[in-house]
Computed example of a mutant assay.
Amino acid sequence: MARRSNSAKRASKSDKISKKPPNFEIRAVDLFCGAGGLTLGLENAGINVAMGIDIDPACEYPFEANNKAKFLKKSVEDVSESELADAYGDAKITLLAGCAPCQPFSTYSKGKSDESDERWNLLLQFGRMVNESRPHLVTMENVPMLAHQKVFEKFVQSLEGIGYHVSHQVVNCADYGVPQQRNRLVLLASRLGPIDLIAPTSPSGKHKTVRKAIEKLPKLSAGECDEKDPLHQASELSALNLKRIRVSKPGGTWRDWPEELVAECHKKASGKTYPSVYGRMGWDEPAPTMTTQFFGFGNGRFGHPEQDRAISLREGAIIQSFPKSYKFAPKGVPIRRKTIGRLIGNAVPVKLGEAIGKSFISHLNNLDEAQAIPA
């Protein structure tokens, strides 16, 4: 939930004017930038992203090949205040954005991660950088479970303690044009006044479906690759899994299969609680949440609704609302499926990034023209 009342009223008002250009240029730095989903979304909204920072070298090509921003391969723990200042230059409005790695807070960790995990410290490093550089605007996106952790409470308190107005809420990305059921925690903060996320752009009943997103892509068989798009490739299937997917129903589970096809682990009492694997997506609803292993049939409900295969890398990227033309590897370089799958699955959906960007622009446009912009 958002931290303040009347947020829906303000969000609705701001959404009506979100298409206006910003009163001032917003220049941003994207921490933990990954392949560039958040950066592209912010750019699409009209925000100038100057630099993306990530420690993963695999991010550099897709980030720079598809965005105007420069990529800096560096741990956020080593990023200095002067490096941020150089990136911001003489911009009148500055934004620090980021999505710290979510694995420690994800439901997939099943309680195995605690504050001894060094990745928990990355959010505090984000807070350090905010405290040192004092950008006018801040945003963070992460998994919903983070909202229940003390490290997040400390982060919010640190922002409020240095004068930021903070709001945060859990949203379904499908409400913002992403063809995927993906719940995420979104935080917005501003030194200029109260701020909230814009109202849903495609609320329930208007969600973009799997059919709308990927139906027109060329058909593939398991193990096949499209000649014109190397990213549109499908993983191989064993003979057993080919039999399984052929009897799988869109939106169904392995419980629909004949007994002889059910895996031994699922016949046990402990395995019966995991129905959301080895399933097909439904055509006329949003996809399930993309993970870093969405290209494998057995890793979730990632079977194509109609074709006997798991979805391709390109289809996963489109479901994350990347444009069909987004480049993840240089031309002629072999596709490393696990690497690109990780980049796609970990990305901030582009359309969610765009909604965040429009929220900041509406926030600025709602300020009184005479209101001073703090240095």
Results as ranks from 00 to 15, higher is better:
residue 219 K to P: 06
residue 341 G to Y: 01
residue 257 W to C: 00
residue 110 K to M: 14
residue 155 F to P: 02
residue 36 G to R: 04
residue 152 F to P: 00
residue 118 E to F: 12
residue 343 L to Y: 05
residue 92 K to M: 14
residue 341 G to H: 01
residue 109 S to F: 06
residue 93 I to L: 13
residue 271 G to W: 04
residue 342 R to G: 08
residue 213 A to V: 05
residue 195 I to L: 12
residue 26 I to S: 07
residue 277 V to L: 11
residue 186 V to Q: 00
residue 214 I to V: 11
residue 3 R to H: 10
residue 9 K to R: 15
residue 257 W to D: 01
residue 25 E to R: 14
residue 188 L to F: 02
residue 372 A to M: 14
residue 43 E to V: 05
residue 133 S to N: 10
residue 288 P to C: 10
residue 263 A to S: 14
residue 355 A to V: 08
residue 90 D to K: 15
residue 340 I to A: 06
residue 353 G to T: 12
residue 223 G to M: 08
residue 295 F to A: 00
residue 214 I to G: 00
residue 138 V to P: 01
residue 349 P to E: 09
residue 4 R to L: 12
residue 160 E to R: 15
residue 58 A to W: 03
residue 316 G to D: 08
residue 178 V to E: 01
residue 320 Q to G: 04
residue 270 S to L: 11
residue 212 K to M: 11
residue 365 N to P: 12
residue 58 A to F: 03
residue 339 T to K: 03
residue 113 S to M: 10
residue 157 Q to W: 11
residue 259 E to D: 15
residue 356 I to S: 04
residue 318 I to N: 01
residue 219 K to M: 09
residue 184 R to N: 05
residue 166 V to W: 02
residue 318 I to Q: 02
residue 163 G to L: 05
residue 65 A to T: 07
residue 203 P to Y: 13
residue 177 G to V: 04
residue 287 A to S: 15
residue 80 S to P: 10
residue 296 G to I: 12
residue 368 D to L: 10
residue 65 A to R: 08
residue 254 W to N: 00
residue 374 P to S: 13
residue 156 V to T: 11
residue 58 A to C: 10
residue 333 V to G: 08
residue 24 F to E: 12
residue 243 K to D: 13
residue 350 V to G: 00
residue 183 N to V: 07
residue 359 S to N: 06
residue 367 L to S: 07
residue 120 W to T: 02
residue 274 Y to L: 13
residue 172 N to F: 09
residue 303 G to D: 05
residue 128 R to M: 09
residue 209 T to V: 05
residue 372 A to G: 13
residue 220 L to R: 02
residue 102 C to V: 06
residue 58 A to D: 03
residue 350 V to H: 02
residue 332 G to H: 11
residue 314 R to N: 08
residue 210 V to P: 00
residue 67 N to T: 10
residue 39 T to Q: 07
residue 257 W to A: 00
residue 33 C to M: 10
residue 326 Y to K: 11
residue 168 H to Y: 15
residue 282 G to I: 11
residue 354 E to C: 09
residue 241 N to V: 00
residue 125 Q to T: 02
residue 162 I to K: 07
residue 204 S to G: 12
residue 351 K to R: 13
residue 363 H to N: 13
residue 71 F to M: 10
residue 9 K to G: 08
residue 18 S to Y: 00
residue 167 S to R: 04
residue 204 S to F: 08
residue 206 K to W: 08
residue 371 Q to E: 15
residue 41 G to P: 05
residue 365 N to A: 14
residue 104 P to T: 01
residue 134 R to P: 06
residue 209 T to N: 08
residue 130 V to P: 02
residue 366 N to C: 12
residue 41 G to E: 05
residue 261 L to N: 06
residue 149 Q to G: 06
residue 301 R to D: 02
residue 301 R to I: 01
residue 5 S to D: 14
residue 214 I to P: 00
residue 101 P to E: 04
residue 174 A to S: 14
residue 343 L to C: 10
residue 310 A to E: 01
residue 106 S to K: 06
residue 194 P to W: 09
residue 106 S to P: 08
residue 263 A to H: 09
